[in-house]
Design a protein around this nucleic acid. Structure first.
Lengths: 234, 234
DNA sequence: TGTCTTAAATTGGTTTACCACATTTATCTC
DNA sequence: GAGATAAATGTGGTAAACCAATTTAAGACA
């Protein structure tokens, strides 16, 4: 069984079209935060789709914080202005193709900040978790095994130690995409992995010593190769 | 009708418990990327909940990129390692309470980068959109009206001009939360709004002139008050 | 024994009818 | 006419039956 995601499926296309229609409705009626959407039954009739599809669309928009369904009452516009809402929906609809370059670019800028926060705020417990991730990484690399997962686990441990829940959430959310693309493009060569062990250790020591600037610099070194890759491909 | 979100509803609690059980199952069975989850019917029987609840839980995990459902085949673990998966699920379950401090902290670091990218990559079209947002903001402020939405629209225009889709998505996703908290804590006073006009103009000019460093510095000035607020409250 | 065909079982997705609660409207009492 | 109460309507949520595609297993035939 393949896990291909090359073309979005029919049901996803239907879902997106309904999301688009809901957006058009909100724009047309100039609905503002707190306003009530028509009932699911009315929407399903208006859009000529089953109520289940409407429910799925609403649920997705609810995930993104744009709508709020309240049982036995209705669905309401959340505290988001019209233009921001349109931007987010645009984003939802073109989903699935965040370019790898922007992904890496964003990861790097977040890592450089989170490593500084980690150096500032890390606890002894954080250090232990990092140490474990570091050991697991080294072990895999020295056995010539693929260590992409372990590599990222070390970085996620740093993100957690940064004590910034939002930053941590974002790092977690881009991790799967990073892994997929790394595997696809074979970003990490074997020699890269070997040098990675020392680089990881340097970062770890800087965090341990609570040296923010050193931590950032060592992280920069670690991303040097990735940086070049990121800005060379188009 | 109030839009209170103080306590999560019963159905949400049930949903979270099922998500937790799915996580436990994955851990217990040591399921790896590509492995197949038991069928929805088996899960609903095992967890003693209706199949619909199981479907909702799977859908939510699919939304976060952890699972992938394929019609008439089954539900599969996406390309995410066990530990990263646990981290993300932890994150999903404690949802709804990203502290304001981390939110602001993250927003600032992303803004300081996105404004540099914008200065580097902005098109003439981008400048027009920014100019419009700027005018709308000034108009509201000079009329002594609330201008939080317009303020953020200018910043979102910058994020869009940064040509980094990932960064733009993140900025969009934290925008609703920012607006809510701004309104709740009355972060923006009237005099702050007035000085904001000039600060916005300065940022705009720097982007227009493609001066990355000036853009970042002007943005820093703009966030100075917010910075202090962010680091004073606990 | 091996390969192709075919039918039965399994799967996620969809539809339908029903539910409990909230809101609105109508009715009754004073 | 005002307030309280009850009936009717409308709402999102839920459970069960149904669907089409897939997978699996059995069977027929060489």
């Amino acid at each position: 069984m393949k896990l291909e995601m090359l073309s979005i499926s029919d049901n996803e296309q239907l879902l997106n079209s309904v999301i688009n229609k809901i957006r058009d409705l909100i724009n047309y009626k100039n609905l503002e935060p707190g306003d009530k959407l028509p009932s699911e039954r009315m929407l399903s009739e208006k859009f000529e789709v089953s109520r289940g599809v409407v429910r799925n669309a609403i649920q997705k928009l609810e995930f993104y914080g744009l709508l709020k369904s309240i049982p036995q009452s209705g669905t309401f516009i959340a505290n988001v202005g019209a233009i921001a809402m349109n931007g987010i929906i645009d984003d939802i609809l073109q989903l699935g193709s965040p370019d790898f370059k922007s992904l890496v670019e964003t990861r790097i800028l977040m890592e450089l900040k989170s490593v500084k926060f980690a150096a500032l705020r890390r606890t002894e417990e954080d250090l232990k978790v990092m140490q474990n991730a570091l050991d697991a990484y080294s072990k895999k690399v020295l056995n010539n095994e693929d260590a992409v997962q372990e590599d990222l686990l070390f970085h996620l441990a740093i993100a957690k130690a940064s004590k910034n829940s939002t930053l941590n959430t974002f790092m977690l959310s881009i991790t799967p995409e990073i892994i997929t693309n790394f595997a696809k493009y074979h970003v990490c060569d074997d020699d890269m992995a070997l040098s990675g062990i020392k680089e990881h250790n340097d970062i770890f020591e800087a965090i341990k010593n609570k040296d923010q600037n050193a931590a950032k610099e060592k992280m920069k070194v670690h991303f040097k190769t990735l940086y070049q890759y990121c800005y060379n491909i188009k």
